[in-house]
């Protein structure tokens, strides 16, 4: 376990900014205590200072996880968000999409979303922006990237892909072994 280096911090915060914009500052500087980012075995964990200090007692090898795993660094040092980060993305998300109930399952099985599956979409979503996906009952399901802006989406035909899948709740089952 170690703090992130400057480059790593830049990558992690950059990725978070992609989804929640300026709200990242609220994750860094929290009113309810000190929270920190830690790199442990190339995975980034977000946890309270107290928990971090308790976890640091355990040696590197046996320590599996602590706090919330936001994502991992690949071998080429790119940062990927994991579905476990959804708890922190969902409440702060800038761009949101609500799915119709029939498209929910499609998304949870790891597919992209067509225009026909979208119930609602937040205004002024540009294309290629990070989007958090909700069900119609406001349950966060995952996140992805918008293939079309809200404006273009209105004109597009119902079979056009609007949202590219990145992560969904189904991953808790599909990649149970690798998630921490």
């Amino acid at each position: 376990m170690r703090p992130l280096t400057e480059e790593e911090t830049e990558k992690v915060l950059g990725k978070l900014t992609y989804f929640i914009g300026d709200n990242v500052a609220q994750l860094i500087d929290r009113s309810d205590g000190n929270y920190c980012f830690r790199n442990h075995k190339e995975r980034v964990y977000y946890c309270s200072e107290k928990l971090m200090r308790q976890a640091s007692v355990i040696a590197r090898e046996p320590l599996l996880a602590f706090g919330t795993c936001l994502g991992k660094f690949t071998k080429t040092k790119k940062f990927y968000l994991h579905i476990t980060a959804l708890d922190y993305l969902a409440p702060y998300a800038k761009n949101r999409v609500w799915l119709k109930s029939q498209a929910e399952q499609q998304f949870l099985y790891g597919n992209n979303i067509l225009k026909s599956g979208i119930g609602r979409m937040s205004e002024a979503t540009p294309s290629n922006a990070g989007v958090v996906v909700f069900s119609m009952t406001d349950t966060p399901l995952g996140f992805g990237v918008s293939a079309k802006s809200t404006q273009d989406c209105k004109k597009a035909d119902p079979t056009a892909v609007v949202l590219l899948h990145q992560c969904d709740l189904g991953e808790y089952i599909r990649s149970e072994a690798t998630l921490t």
């Binding site: 376990m1 170690r2 703090p3 280096t5 400057e6 911090t9 830049e10 915060l13 950059g14 900014t17 300026d22 990242v24 500052a25 860094i28 500087d29 000190n34 929270y35 920190c36 980012f37 830690r38 200072e49 971090m52 200090r53 640091s56």
Partner: peptide, 25 residues
Amino acid sequence: RKFEPNEGKITEENKRALQIFDKIK
């Protein structure tokens, strides 16, 4: 490679993170 100490001051660490975040913005 050189890393910051794990159990340093969290407030300082967060200050640095905020600076980086400002740069990103």
